[in-house]
Write a protein that binds this DNA or RNA. Structure first.
Lengths: 141, 141
DNA sequence: TCTTTGTTGCAACTGATTTGCAACTGCAAT
DNA sequence: ATTGCAGTTGCAAATCAGTTGCAACAAAGA
């Protein structure tokens, strides 16, 4: 675990403890390299240490969100995924068949932000966009 | 109720019944002239007929959604509102202070759709965007 | 090692939405 | 107008995602 050190320090600096459960939540997210729901994280986590409770996962996700490390995204229909915090403008591609979630480059949202701010004359805090369609894999099926 | 006739026909054509509860759900939405949560609709509904159950509201909303009349929108954080079905590309402005929800003209989303389809080479089914910021009223406070 | 205090697992709880069911009611056919 | 019956309702219970209270536990500084 090469990243652990930084995470441990971040936690300690804020008076929190670097528990294995917390580190593992980040580890799972790091391995997955995509956005995951709390349930998915919990499932992946249980393969290594079966005792971990779902509520602990939720608590860890909330904590890391407060610390600015992670960020929740509501995709509609009750789907909420967590991922690494990035820029304020955030886009997802959601395949309507297989549920696959892809990241949208910020370059797509930037013009939208610009046109909104220009039209309204005041700044936009953040944009959350979900684009629904069929992913390439599902198109050829 | 001048609109009722069309709604009644729509329902009957699909083998459903035009019950007062269902018609009233649409009526409330029509009066409100903005997106409402199920709870809000239920509250407005109860002023006229106190007996109406929340589950009936949910059932009506689901039905009208299936019939293509209404459309749910997830604004994140568990907020789900219902409104009249419009174009596939849908944008909301959400004031982060007062929670006010505004409609975004489709003209803002159209360039986004165009650039996405151009970049990927295949069509996008729909776009759901939430723009967060402070509404003019909250800015001056 | 000891102690302090943050953290965990568990179970119970919440708020939003759904569902099973007996009683009820549009409405098309009498 | 009356009837019959499938579609609907209100109610209560179930469900689902997420949160919380609490006693036992465990990081980490001394």
């Amino acid at each position: 675990m090469p990243h652990c050190v930084q995470t441990r320090r971040l936690l300690r600096e804020h008076g929190y403890r670097a528990t294995p459960q917390r580190l593992m939540v980040l580890e799972v997210l790091r391995m997955a390299d995509r956005h995951l729901t709390a349930e998915e994280i919990h499932a992946a986590l249980k393969e290594r240490s079966p005792g971990v409770d779902l509520s602990t996962v939720y608590r860890a996700l909330r904590l890391f969100t407060r610390l600015g490390l992670l960020e929740p995204h509501d995709l509609g229909g009750g789907r909420r995924v967590y991922g690494w915090r990035t820029q304020p403008d955030h886009g997802h591609f959601l395949c309507e068949r297989c549920g696959r979630i892809e990241h949208l480059g910020e370059e797509f949202l930037k013009p939208l932000r610009r046109s909104l701010e220009q039209a309204w004359g005041y700044p936009v805090r953040r944009i959350e966009a979900t684009v629904v369609g069929l992913c390439p894999a599902c198109r050829n099926a």
